[in-house]
């Protein structure tokens, strides 16, 4: 989500083929959900698919707007629920998470990386500089005699010095632990919320790995 300069046009701002109005109207009546993966492995998003046939049950009541599973690049209107996978590791993650906080009533940290930083937060024990040097300077496959380069460019976000859990950046409303939480757990949380029940994750569904 780099800053738009005057001659820069984002694909999602261009004219798109419109949806059939009756199909769109049916979607608009449902509960609106947005999803995002920040710094993680995308596993919690795939664990969402692991609810299997319950996905079809959920989609009777829910419309998914922005998500890596759709081509909707920004949250188009107010959403009831924001599903957030991954922690915060660069400036783009911060902007995206703030965009979700501004546009969602309820934000859920899904999985270890969102809840406490997860495996990517292991880099908090070493300096960012050492991580970058290991990857780009000390690499055994570096091209001999080539100028050594650490990526830095207007089109790629700057990396934060530490990896943060989501709730250290914005207020998060609910937390689902696990690496990943399984599909049944994700379904229970979403099914409870869309049916007007309280968030209630029993200890029996907690996962530590």
């Amino acid at each position: 989500m780099s800053t738009t300069t005057k001659n820069e046009v984002a694909s999602h701002e261009l004219k798109a083929t419109p949806m059939d109005p009756s199909v769109q109207a049916a979607r608009d009546e449902k509960i609106q959900v947005a999803m995002i993966g920040l710094c993680g492995c995308w596993g919690c998003t795939l664990s969402f698919l692991d609810m299997d046939e319950n996905l079809l049950v959920l989609l009777e009541k829910v419309n998914i707007t922005r998500s890596s599973l759709t081509d909707i690049k920004r949250i188009p209107h107010r959403c009831a629920i924001g599903f957030v996978e991954g922690g915060v590791a660069n400036e783009e993650n911060i902007e995206t998470l703030e965009h979700f906080r501004e546009n969602c009533d309820v934000l859920i940290s899904v999985g270890a990386c969102a809840v406490w930083g997860g495996v990517p937060a292991m880099r908090n024990d070493v300096s960012l500089e050492d991580c970058l040097k290991e990857a780009y300077i000390a690499s055994p496959t570096a091209v001999p005699q080539a100028k050594l380069t650490i990526p830095y460019h207007e089109d790629i976000p700057r990396i934060t010095t530490k990896v943060y859990p989501c709730h250290e950046v914005v207020k998060m409303d609910y937390f689902i632990p696990g690496c990943p939480p399984d599909g049944a757990t994700i379904f229970k949380v979403l099914d409870d919320l869309v049916n007007g029940r309280e968030f209630d994750l029993p200890a029996s569904m907690n996962r530590y790995d």
Binding site: V9, A10, S11, W42
Partner: peptide, 21 residues
């Protein structure tokens, strides 16, 4: 007028990508 077109983020893939033209 020259233009820069951007796809941000690339979707229906895993992970974070961006395209500039």
């Amino acid at each position: 007028m020259s233009r820069k077109l951007v796809i941000d983020p690339v979707t229906k893939v895993e992970g974070h990508g961006k395209v500039t033209v």
